[in-house]
Amino acid sequence: MIALLVRDLRLAVRAGGGFGLGLAFFLIVTVLVPFAVGPEGETLARIAPGILWVGALLACLLSLDRIFQLDFEDGSLDLLATAPLPMEGAVVVKALAHWLTTGLPLTLAAPVFGILMNMQAPGHWWIFVTLLIGTPALSMIGAFGAALTVGLKRGGLLLSLLVLPLYVPTLIFGAEAATRGGAGMAVTTPILMLAGITAGVVAFLPFAAAAAIRINIR
């Protein structure tokens, strides 16, 4: 299991793409928004948590198709299917690798990018916390979407169409908690809901994703 994780991480870093690309994309989205809505600090500060959440979500989406695609093409997915490690475990490890290479860097970068959005003091902390809780769910849901579309030649666009509606609850509670936290309001409910979604997703979606992979490599 650890070996698989290390292998995936090494591949991601060596291939270069996923790691830096998501972050760069996130930065560009954050830079583009002020050009679009204007430089007024007040407006930017108000929409900052939402923009950072959407930006992180889209950046996360970019690298989803890599979760299983390479392994599917070179046949290592078939090997994984016959390996002693159950497919559910492999899915979790791959989602974890995706999170470590995409979700975690995004989470760490978001408070810094918040400065560009004129974010005020407690806001940085809350965007960090909510992304930290929420991005694992994004990776896991994304792994499920990637598992559904792994056999397709051009699954990228379809993957977005399938995954984005599934991201809605995470986005709502994540952005809401970040907004409330930044405004100094009570955040317990949305944070709990966000954590609940992440926990539920990590507990149950590996089974659905593993089932989808087994169907695809049948």
Binding site: P165, P169, I172
Partner: peptide, 16 residues
């Protein structure tokens, strides 16, 4: 999976 998330979205949207 979509059904579960659709119900979840309904509650999330209510809250939001």
């Amino acid at each position: 999976v979509g059904s579960v998330f659709a119900v979840l979205s309904r509650y999330a949207v209510n809250f939001w």
